[in-house]
């Protein structure tokens, strides 16, 4: 696969490490989360047949974490964003 890095352009997927569902960005605060909330965050993932937002880490590159929107059936990649931008846009900023 080829991932079109927002800063570096098209890069081979072999340069990246895969983590999983981009919902991992939404970590509940450990001081206020309920057991169920933290349990769901750590253990539960959707496994869609189709479009999936997922986290990839450019370990053999600039060490950016990316949110890649990929179709799990066709491997078509429709969107690649810097995870930091996504995290801020989704309310992880201060």
């Amino acid at each position: 696969m080829i991932i079109d890095h927002p800063l570096l352009g098209p890069r081979d997927a072999a340069e990246f490490v895969y983590k999983g569902d981009a919902s991992l960005i939404h970590r509940p605060d450990g001081m206020t989360a309920t057991d169920d909330e933290m349990h769901d965050y750590v253990y539960l993932r959707d496994n869609p047949a189709g479009e999936h937002r997922e986290l990839w880490y450019h370990e053999q590159g600039d060490r950016s974490w990316l949110v890649v929107t990929r179709n799990t059936l066709t491997h078509e990649i429709s969107k690649v964003e810097l995870a930091r931008d996504v995290a801020r846009a989704e309310g992880r900023g201060q």
Binding site: L24, L55, Y57, R92, Q94
Partner: peptide
């Protein structure tokens, strides 16, 4: 790096 970029991007 994951924590820095994804969990607490503004630190």
């Amino acid at each position: 790096e994951f924590a820095r970029q994804c969990l607490w991007p503004d630190l």
